[in-house]
Design a protein around this nucleic acid. Structure first.
Length: 976
RNA sequence: GCCCGGGUGGCGGAACGGUUUACGCAGAGGACUUAAAAUCCUUGACCCGCAAGGGUUUGUGGGUUCGAAUCCCACCCCGGGCACCA
């Protein structure tokens, strides 16, 4: 028998697939289209990582399955066969290659060409079913011409603009770095501490699309976590802009300061305001001499300007700031003057760069106020519980007694019916002050009397039902905090209805948080002991006409009262795309003294990236030192002008590549809109979980822009997205060169072949989970493939000896094959490749099981015919396509018959269900026995079987069944 | 600190209201072989028991249910992301 030899069959089919253009996607096909986008790799010098083929194998399974019409209703595969656009390309521009080239003293172009060749070879050895005629490469002029064109369209619409902005500057490499290249404030490459520099940069106005980028997330079939991260990244918040008048020394009016707030309802508690150090008001105060502490302020501003991101992190969020002495602002709600501070916890780049500080209801303001002893005014009284009709009103206290030596808190356990664990509470008597009430209650209920009062909350509101008194209550509560000074207990005097109803417990902080359920008592604890501030809703207090109203309900009325305006604010910033490096797309702009930034005429595109002598960054873009490139005539006035010497962020290159695949060789347009409309949006995009924001957000932005330009009818590029988990090293850590634990795809494929490698990648665990590479684990799937091969080849040999009456057989006969067809099809659809493969293994195990034949011989060649074999070969094909195709040929299919275009097998429902069922017999939910029963078993029969079972009888020990639960054909549970 | 994931045999994992540990790896025993590799068969959570059988077990503690790995609450641990966004 012919042995399984992947080294022979894999290169053979790979060559045929490419030479015969088997997987070419036809624009004019009558079949329904399916577009599967593969994350195009960055061709690094390190070569392919095992993570690449993991994602690719999953897509290849889906692509081949779709071509076979899989996923349709059973039996309708033939009509469901898809025309699949499935492609590969190279994200070939970028900094790592440039750095590598500089290090080894070579040209980035040559290095990229070599890396790309190597990647192409590696990808091809896996046998993925790509249409290789659609390959794209972002570093080729025929591609980046259109990247430049895209930039110019954005420029024309005002969506690409130049502005001064902060950049990450590496002092050693003399260059700007992308945020991704800054790791913990250090240069990813040389480890230098990154400086912040202000430079004029190109930006793309992605913020103009913030609302649509957020709102359209709901159209997408993407992992929930990724949608959430996009939402957080965009960071929309609804609030108000409110103007605060200011005045200088002697009451001279100065310009107003506008703040952005999401909590305008707290404005009566705004006791000071804070500006970012770079706020223009600060500079104007310094300039007009209105400050009495100008030197301190100037020093703080200067220090803040030099603070890097790293330094701010090291500050551990310790608040710093300086008051602008000599000026003040006026709270428009209270008309009271309030001090103005500057502090770097307020960001110049968000909102208006100025805030109103409400230390009573904001944690950051609270920390700042505590440090600089600024006044705190509570204006929201927390409200807990649910309001009920006919509430009795009362004034109460909650007393927290702390034993500081023991680190415990005094609680009363009232049992589950009366509220569980509570602090000491009680109602106030007429004329009694709150502290007196608390001391009295503590003494009455616990006998403790030596107490020191250390703090209190403001008033709170709580709705509850007092079961002991059978009455609904709406109470005013004040939380009071005492420290125990002596442990003697004397003079307890319980009311009659309290006698024996509770027990005293001293709990640790953790136990209080664990056991206490009462919202109001817990809130007292959080505020008094944990020092938390209250940032929720409640009843307004100290808020003039608004006092007593619900804080949320009054929010916009207050905005109106202080003449503020509603405002939506976003966290997302415009996309910085300038890179002062060489290996990227030249920005197609010409700078002219007279005409400013002038776009390169479209007829002059592409602006070709020229080879230069020295690629090393020297504080200015390498292209700037190439006079032949830089010096041009202005397209408008014809005078001397200079080209922009910067290159585009490579994320721009990748923000539209999926569109180019629809029409990759078009020389006249970025793509033919009809072709894009035909193939897109993408029906499946498999991408690493690390790409949850940037690339996906940028691609969505560009798609929306092109939609607005009328080039595409859709406004979301990727309808369905799935993430792949990492392949970890055998030690469970990330694979990395420095740890020396990298698994090399060349070695693995060389040793086991592509089919085995692919199958193992899919079998390791759930697709979206990270799983360690087990060098022994791959042996399991290798054995499976060999056994599968041997089985099919043996059977083919037998078939040729004694031809069955093939015509008479409609489909496969053996039930296990029908079950597997169903299971594998469902699992592929739901990305459960590991269990699909497991089902294939189970099927093979059953097919090759020893059976005893009529003449008493042990035999593992069970009855199987050609239909069976064809079906199981089809099932394996998406996973191990070289083997699938080879066996298909050996089954006698003509040369040129590609299994990928054969219909996915159908199954017979009747054969999927078992003829016998296993009944689990339980007594009180515990398994006592299992019995086999015919699948037609009725409830009565099943119960009868259970009651007559000896194990069941023993467990029942003569007791009578109270109840018998029956789960159809599964369980009989006798409750006694 | 906040937001997502996730804790099941020696290992990767399966089951996501109904027999916990499918499938695979590793282990143990056996067959074939001069031997090894390969292949095939048997076995396979833990404790008690010769066995029949019984008990325990899905991070911990509670709850709901006839029945919980699965649903709810609290806590612990691991991984990832964000990190003063007013």
């Amino acid at each position: 028998m012919r042995a399984y030899d992947p080294k022979e069959i894999e290169p053979k089919w790979q060559k045929r697939w490419i030479d015969d253009k088997v997987f070419a996607a036809h624009d004019d096909s009558k079949k329904e289209k399916r577009y599967q986008l593969e994350t195009f790799p960055y061709p690094s010098a390190a070569g392919l990582h095992m993570g690449h083929p993991k994602g690719y194998a999953a897509e290849d399974i889906q692509a081949r399955f779709a071509r076979m019409g899989g996923g349709a209703r059973n039996g309708e595969a033939a009509a469901n066969r898809k025309e699949v656009l499935y492609t590969m390309g190279w994200d070939a521009f970028g900094l790592p290659t440039e750095n590598f080239a500089i290090k080894v003293g070579r040209n980035p172009q040559d290095v990229t060409n070599e890396n790309t060749e190597n990647f192409r070879r590696q990808v091809r050895m896996f046998g993925f079913s790509y249409d290789w005629d659609r390959e794209v490469n972002t570093s080729k002029p025929d591609y980046y011409k259109w990247t430049q064109w895209l930039f110019l369209q954005l420029f024309k619409k005002g969506l690409a603009y130049q502005a001064a902005g902060k950049v990450n500057w590496c002092p050693k490499d003399q260059t700007v770095l992308a945020n991704e290249q800054v790791v913990d404030g250090h240069c990813e490459r040389c480890g230098s501490v990154i400086e912040e520099r202000d430079m004029t940069q190109w930006f793309l106005r992605i913020t103009a699309y913030a609302d649509r980028l957020l709102d359209d997330l709901k159209k997408l079939d993407w992992p929930a976590a990724t949608l959430k991260r996009q939402e957080d990244w965009i960071g929309r918040s609804e609030g108000a802009l409110i103007s605060f008048a200011t005045q200088g020394n002697g009451g001279a009016a100065k310009g107003p300061i506008e703040v952005f707030t999401t909590r305008p309802e707290t404005i009566f508690g705004a006791t000071y305001m804070v500006l970012a150090p770079e706020h223009p008001f600060v500079a104007s105060c310094l300039a007009d001499g209105s400050l009495t502490n100008a030197a301190d302020v100037a020093a703080y501003v200067a220090a803040a300007a030099h603070k890097t991101e790293l330094m701010r992190k090291e500050d551990e969020k310790e608040k710093t700031g300086v008051e602008l002495k000599g000026v003040s602002a006026v709270n428009p709600a209270t008309n009271q003057p309030i001090p103005v501070w500057i502090a770097d916890y307020v960001l110049g780049s968000y909102g208006t760069g100025a805030i109103m500080a409400v230390p009573a209801h904001d944690g950051r303001d609270a920390a700042f106020a505590a440090k600089f002893r600024l006044p705190v005014v509570e204006v929201i009284e927390p409200e807990t519980g649910q309001a009920m009709p006919n509430e009795e009103r009362r004034s109460s206290i909650v007393a927290i007694v702390e034993d500081r030596e023991a680190g415990r808190f005094l609680t009363l356990d009232w049992g589950p019916k009366l509220g569980g664990t509570l602090f000491i509470g009680g109602g106030r008597k007429d004329g009694e002050d709150e502290i007196a009430t608390a001391l009295r209650e503590i003494k009455e209920e616990t006998g403790y009397g030596q107490l020191e009062f250390v703090g209190r909350t403001g008033r709170m509101h709580h709705h509850y039902f007092a079961f002991s008194k059978n009455v609904a209550r709406n109470i005013d509560v004040v939380g009071l905090h005492f420290v125990l000074k002596g442990r003697e207990q004397e003079g307890r005097s319980l009311e009659a209805d309290e006698q024996g109803r509770f027990s005293i417990e001293w709990l640790t902080k953790e136990d209080v948080l664990r056991k206490m359920e009462d919202e109001n008592h817990l809130l007292c604890f959080r505020r008094l002991v944990l020092g938390e501030i209250y940032a929720g809703r409640g009843i307004l207090a100290g808020s003039a006409a608004f006092t007593g109203r619900d804080s949320e309900a009054a929010k916009w009325d207050i905005v109106q009262a202080v003449r503020g305006t509603r405002k939506t604010q976003y966290r997302i910033r415009d996309w910085s795309v300038s890179r002062q490096r060489y290996w990227g797309v030249p920005i197609p702009i010409i700078h002219c003294e007279r005409d400013g930034a002038v776009p390169v005429p479209e007829s002059d595109l592409p602006v070709v990236l020229p080879p230069i002598d020295d690629y090393r960054p020297k504080g200015m873009p390498p292209l700037a030192s190439s006079p032949a490139f830089i010096n041009v005539k202005c397209p408008v006035c014809g005078g001397d002008a200079k080209r922009d010497a910067e290159t585009l962020d490579t994320f721009v290159d990748s923000s539209w590549y999926f569109l180019r695949y629809a029409d990759p060789r078009n020389e006249r347009r970025i793509f033919d809109p009809d072709k894009a409309a035909h193939w897109l949006p993408v029906d499946l995009y498999v991408i690493g979980a690390e790409h949850t924001v940037l690339h996906l957000l940028y691609s969505r932005f560009v798609t929306k822009f092109l939609h607005d330009e009328g080039l595409v009818p859709f406004d979301e590029p990727f309808s369905v997205l799935r993430h792949q988990g990492l392949i970890l090293a055998a030690d469970g850590r990330k694979m990395s060169k420095s740890l020396g634990n990298v698994v090399n795809p060349d070695e693995i494929v060389g040793e086991f072949g592509a089919d085995t490698t692919r199958l193992y990648l899919m079998f390791m665990g759930p697709f979206e989970d990270s799983t360690p590479w087990d060098p022994k684990g791959i042996l399991g799937v290798e054995r499976f493939l060999k056994r599968f091969w041997n089985y099919v080849v043996t059977m083919i040999g037998l078939l040729s000896h004694e031809p069955h009456d093939q015509a008479a057989t409609e489909g496969p006969k053996r039930p296990v094959i029908h079950k597997t067809i169903k299971k594998v099809g469902e699992d592929i659809v739901s990305f459960k490749f590991n269990t699909a493969i497991s089902a294939l293994m189970i099927m093979l195990n059953e097919l090759t099981e020893m059976v005893t034949t009529d003449d008493g011989e042990d035999d593992r060649i069970a009855m199987t015919d050609r239909k069976d074999l064809e079906a199981i070969v089809k099932l394996v094909h998406p996973f191990a396509p070289h083997m699938g195709q080879e066996l298909w040929s050996m089954l006698g299919h003509a040369d040129g018959s590609y299994l990928d275009f054969e219909p996915w097998p159908a199954y017979d429902e009747a054969l999927v269900v078992d003829r016998t069922v296993k009944l689990v017999l339980q007594v009180n939910g515990k398994v006592r026995d299992t019995v086999e029963a015919d699948a037609s078993v009725t409830e009565e029969q099943a119960k009868d079987l259970a009651l007559r079972n000896p194990n069941v009888a023993r467990a029942m020990a003569g007791a009578a069944p109270k109840r018998v639960i029956y789960v159809d054909k599964k369980i009989v549970n006798i409750v006694i």
